[in-house]
Design a protein around this nucleic acid. Structure first.
Lengths: 344, 344
DNA sequence: TTGTACGCGTTATCAA
DNA sequence: TTGATAACGCGTACAA
């Protein structure tokens, strides 16, 4: 059997409570006994039992991570491993563990989270998605469960600590970049408007378009599901217009890949005939043909800061509601170029 | 404060132990009192405290998932979200939670796992990688920690329950497919030989080549890091040979994407000039140009079965060591085609 | 069929 | 500076 605190106590000839204090590095224990106890711990290969500690403490040192519905295609986005890597780093630094939760349906996810919370398996949650009218966030707020959201909350934004990019600004900037390149007909291909991120990027795009005195055209704005069919369908629509765009603003690298393929199939050359920009800067965006001009949103940092603030919220309440903005950076690669008049 | 088992007991006018039995659905409790107790639980919104239960039980109903080093580029492979989706499904079905563990370095991972185990945070582990001379697997075996590996163990294969594909067979089959298409010069582009999966696939490839009476050429076998540079470097080498290959066997879809891009840049047409096949059938393999012929290894199932067997091992020891083979399937798409003589 | 009493391994309170 | 003791919430012999 594994050594317990009592075994260590006996071996070091002290009381269990003393051992406990040594573990916590309580300053009121003499260095001498600390030494003795530590030796005993070594000899017995003692490791504190987290479960027992949690029970006594009422703290699990664990944060729950809630993924979107696994049925969702977006689940396969390399965004997730990367954000989890960030969370993991932040959690690890403070000796926290990570408890994952997924489900096929929204109900399944909700049920899982309730179990986690009521069962006291976690001290707090990081939500990796934000949805309109989310029953989950409502539940969490009502029950005063500490949580942090990655991305922008749809409702009650003033009451939810979240870690996000300034997607409005990023979208505006990258659109301005295209405009500066001489493009006047810039289309927007985005995911569902139920995602806050889509809304923000659309608004930034619109702002830049209007600022430049260009026409904001409804037929240049297309929303599709993530991935494959999405991007391809969008391209179909856009290039059957009388005045097809000369540049495409795509809200996600993965969609952009679909777009690139479709363009290739239609013999539309990138960037000669049309420029393409997108978001995320996942690894694949470097190896696409051509490599994608994309906004690096610093996914790792998104996760890292989420973890850090989650732990802050757990350890020193009342931590005020915060909005943490992670900087972005436009990475220019070959998928975008100056618009050449001779194409007209 | 949250309701405890005692509160429920009082409200239902029974002893706490009775409530406990109702939760466990002990048949020796009369339906009548069960009903009464359940009502009380409803009214108080009672949820059992997992931590307390774990302490009493010495079972956490949680399985730990060990990811490879997050510094590793392979970490970004969509393989991981998908396998985790499978694990999650399997775990959820049996009411198990998932505890994740990562780290930048091998030592960090090891330390994290030891904490998980000694701290009794998990009942068992699923390892998502297998390495030569892994200190972790040695530790786990010595301490009789129940664990299941996804992939093929390098050492002590007879003593480690693992869930894997028959990569040897799959590689052989897909090579035979190329041979049947008329290809005689087939090159192999794979990851590190320290990964069991690379070794298996290489052997299957070699076997098929030799069976067909073809030449197994060393200069047709290239090992590179996953991703980008890897695939591209390999193509460079192969096509500067005097007799370049007419078909490429790539061990991973992501690498294959890099290969496709490099080929495109070199103006080598796929599949007219060269056929490409790879492994995994991740979502992206459908939207590549051209779509990839690839071996679907059923990643989800890999995770699902790993979870199922992990739980079996936890719940009914001694569970014998097992080797679970998940079936694969060749998915033929446009990246491969018959070899046409006129190309000679 | 149900209740009593103890143990799980730790922390925290109060004495000493 | 340390020790004894009571929680923490639940499961389970054993008793009734």
């Amino acid at each position: 059997m594994m050594a317990t605190i009592k075994d260590v106590a006996k071996r070091a000839k002290v009381a269990p409570s003393t051992v406990s204090r040594v573990i916590a590095n309580n300053p009121r224990i003499s260095e001498k006994t600390k030494q003795r106890v530590r030796e005993a711990m070594q000899e017995l290969c003692y490791h504190p039992n987290f479960i027992a500690r949690s029970l006594a403490n009422k703290s699990t040192q664990t944060i729950g991570v809630v993924m979107p519905s696994s049925a969702d295609k977006a689940f396969q986005n390399p965004f997730f491993p990367e954000v989890i890597r960030g969370i993991s780093k932040g959690a690890h630094q403070k000796q926290y563990g990570i408890h994952m939760s997924t489900g096929d349906t929204e109900e399944e996810i909700f049920e899982g989270v309730v179990q986690m919370i009521e069962g006291k398996r976690v001290d707090g949650l990081i939500l990796l998605y934000s949805r309109v009218d989310d029953m989950l966030t409502n539940y969490l707020r009502q029950n005063k469960v500490p949580f942090v959201m990655v991305g922008k909350p749809f409702n009650a934004i003033e009451e939810i600590t979240h870690v996000d990019n300034d997607n409005y600004k990023a979208a505006k900037e990258v659109t301005e970049y295209l405009i500066n390149q001489g493009h006047k007909r810039i289309a927007f291909i985005g995911g569902s408007l139920k995602l806050a991120v889509t809304v923000d990027r659309l608004q930034g795009y619109e702002k830049a378009i209007r600022n430049a005195g260009l026409n904001f055209r409804d037929d240049y704005v297309i929303h599709e599901e993530f991935l494959k069919e999405g991007g391809q369908e969008a391209v179909n629509e856009l290039f059957s217009l009388e005045e097809p765009p000369t540049a495409l603003f795509v809200t996600d690298d993965l969609m952009a890949l679909g777009v690139l393929n479709k363009l290739d199939a239609m013999n539309i050359h990138v960037p000669r005939d049309v420029s393409v920009v997108s978001f995320n800067n996942i690894l694949l965006s470097q190896i696409s043909r051509p490599p994608l001009t994309t906004v690096d949103i610093n996914i790792f940092q998104l996760g890292y800061e989420a973890a850090k603030h989650m732990i802050l919220k757990i350890e020193e309440p009342p931590e005020p509601v915060k909005r943490i903005i992670i900087p972005h950076k436009i990475v220019i690669r070959q998928s975008s170029s100056e618009y050449k008049k001779e194409n007209e």
